[in-house]
Design a protein around this nucleic acid. Structure first.
Lengths: 205, 205
DNA sequence: CCCCCCGTATGACACCTGTCATGCCGGACC
DNA sequence: GGTCCGGCATGACAGGTGTCATACGGGGGG
């Protein structure tokens, strides 16, 4: 017997990687890539048009991140299974992926065989998470930053001065410095650049 | 007639991407992936063992970068064609790739079809370079930084203070500040963080 | 109702950073 | 042999940054 194949949507911004992953999945007889998206904000429409069983989402994409897309998908299509596929095994990403209702979280340096396997498993109702990463995510606790502290850090990432940050965020310079100061302390950083680096590593930006 | 297939070595640190690219190339009847490497410092041995016609190298790899590997390969195997495949279309990377004797420079967000095409072209003696990127590389000129300025910038990337930089590099704090100051001016940056960002973008770090 | 947290703001202080002038040494190039 | 550049250093100054105390209004929880 040949049951109808699993229909997969693949969202990843780098064409070469996306099409290569499609080729990889195409080798599996029980999986069919029915749609591809190069941007996060194309995902919802693609799902509407092709009704896949599983959505495979990269995190770093223009338009919207895979995490944002996952959230929208869960709201609109509760039965659709979401697999997050990312370059960076950042604990904060994993946490947000789970909160967004994803069923699996894969890093791109895992063996390729795990991809098809994960697709089958999530469809069977299982969750797929690297145990080491799960431990790391639980160990470090949640993001300690407030929304505004995160905003300021994000804007500060490109080397902007306090004056520029104040303008961009419509705040006084003093307020910007207050937020940066508390963020630096919460992250145990030496200065703003260090704080940005730490927040990035943890997946909090 | 079926001529013997083109033998390709594939070096890329993310297993999933590497194996996916292998699957993609495997779809081409005239191309065979005879070896894979996950680290830059495995490339030379892999070439010795499998004598490929073309080496496909990612830049960002542990052990040694694809650019370093390319240089070694050109010295040891002048007839081997090298294709650099990278996430980041940084002009400085392209420049260094060409200086290392690479025959092609592809970015991962180019269409997948260009990969096999590039392999065939370099074997035929052609060079494969994105014209827009080539223009950018030529337009911006060469890296203006001196070796020490680059050293200091690289160490400053993680948010280190002048005192730490001085210790790490066995310099006086004043010297560190001098190097950073000249680097900031050469890169037209606002401060060290901005300078790090700019140098990274250009592929000079 | 009170307290705590968040967002926002100010002022003051110490310290860090970026700039500039200046100096010395060694190598490269004419 | 002189000139230029790179590596290294010092000192001084201005302005940017990080910290802290303090303040006020609003929202949520006990």
């Amino acid at each position: 017997m040949t049951p109808s194949p699993i229909k997969v949507l693949l969202a990843e911004d780098q064409s070469m990687v996306r099409e290569a992953l499609a080729a990889l999945l195409g080798l599996e007889p029980d999986i069919e890539v029915v749609a591809q998206a190069a941007r996060g904000d194309e995902v919802l429409d693609a799902v509407r048009a092709h009704a896949p069983d599983v959505a495979l989402l990269d995190i770093e994409m223009p338009g919207a991140t895979g995490l944002e897309a996952a959230e929208q998908l869960q709201a609109a299509f509760p039965d659709l299974k979401v697999v997050i596929l990312t370059t960076f095994g950042r604990p904060g990403y994993l946490r947000r992926a789970m909160e967004s209702g994803a069923s699996a979280f894969l890093v791109k340096d895992a063996p390729a065989a795990q991809l098809a396997e994960a697709v089958r498993k999530v469809l069977a109702g299982e969750k797929v998470i690297d145990p080491a990463l799960a431990a790391a995510a639980l160990a470090e606790g949640a993001d300690p930053l407030t929304d505004r502290e995160r905003d300021v850090l994000r804007e500060a990432a490109d080397g902007a001065t306090n004056a520029e940050l104040a303008t961009r965020l419509h705040l006084s310079q003093g307020t910007v410095r207050n937020y940066l100061s508390t963020a630096i302390q919460k992250l145990a950083a030496r200065n703003r650049a260090d704080a940005v680096r730490i927040a990035r590593e943890k997946g909090w930006l």
